[in-house]
């Protein structure tokens, strides 16, 4: 019984997140702030998209 609720709850949350994530990436960036850069080279969290190491990748396949 509880397993069912847990799975259902997971699916709902996952769905909402994926939906929002997708809609967010679809809404166009307002004009004039295309090349916004956060100067956070100090932080070494390579997983966050702002990290310089990502730019090379993003520029070539967009």
């Amino acid at each position: 019984m509880q397993v069912f609720y847990a799975i259902l709850f997971g699916v709902v949350l996952g769905g909402i997140y994926a939906g929002l994530y997708y809609m967010n990436h679809k809404t166009p960036v307002p004009k004039g702030c295309e090349n916004l850069k956060a100067d956070c080279e100090g932080c070494k969290v390579t997983s966050c998209e702002m990290h310089p190491s990502h730019n090379i990748k993003e520029t070539n396949h967009d």
Binding site: P30, K31, G32, C33, L36, K37, A38, C40, C48
Partner: peptide, 18 residues
């Protein structure tokens, strides 16, 4: 923020994914 206030996005938008 992207949709409704570009000025706010210019100031904050960049940091949200962080």
């Amino acid at each position: 923020i992207k949709k409704y206030s570009p000025s706010l996005y210019k100031a904050l938008g960049v940091y949200l994914p962080l």
